[in-house]
């Protein structure tokens, strides 16, 4: 079965995602900080990484982790699903900047907005783990 690796500082969101994903038979592992991400993703042999954007010490840690994963030879092929409580369309002008939305700068395959809509999440995960 496909393996999904979640990085989010909110344990409840990890739990909610895990419940939904495991219900469809995905294997799930996770971490709540940015530490040793590359090593952990590699050793878990993930098929998909779900990344939160904002972390307590760094409001754009998710973007940095996405770039790190895409630059590393061992993880660059793994699709990334970005997860955030802030709408990626930037409706109120204080969301992602245009630069963040640049595909080269932000190598992210898909966005999922919080709260988790189980069906929408499963649809995107299925698409990215074909």
């Amino acid at each position: 079965m496909k393996k999904i690796y979640i990085v989010d500082d909110d344990k409840d969101i990890i739990e909610a995602l895990t419940i939904v994903l495991e219900s469809k038979g995905y294997e799930v592992s996770s971490q709540t900080s940015e530490e040793s991400l590359i090593e952990n993703v590699k050793s878990y042999d993930a098929d998909l990484v779900i990344l939160d954007v904002i972390f307590p010490e760094n409001p754009s840690a998710g973007f940095e982790m996405a770039r790190e994963l895409s630059r590393n030879a061992g993880t660059k092929e793994i699709p990334i699903l970005m997860l955030s409580a802030v709408n990626e369309k930037g409706e109120y002008g204080f969301s992602f900047s245009n630069r963040d939305r640049d595909e080269e700068y932000l190598p992210v395959s898909e966005f999922v907005e919080k709260p988790i809509q189980p069906e929408a999440l499963l649809e995107k995960v299925a698409k990215l783990t074909v």
């Binding site: 909610a16 409580a85 189980p118």
Partner: peptide, 25 residues
């Protein structure tokens, strides 16, 4: 941006749990 995140993050977790419960997961 920070306030938005601070306020929306707990709701996102509550709403996610509610959806999971309502949809039978």
């Amino acid at each position: 941006l920070h306030s938005t995140h601070q306020l929306k993050a707990p709701f996102a977790a509550i709403q996610s749990y509610a959806d999971i419960l309502l949809q039978g997961y």
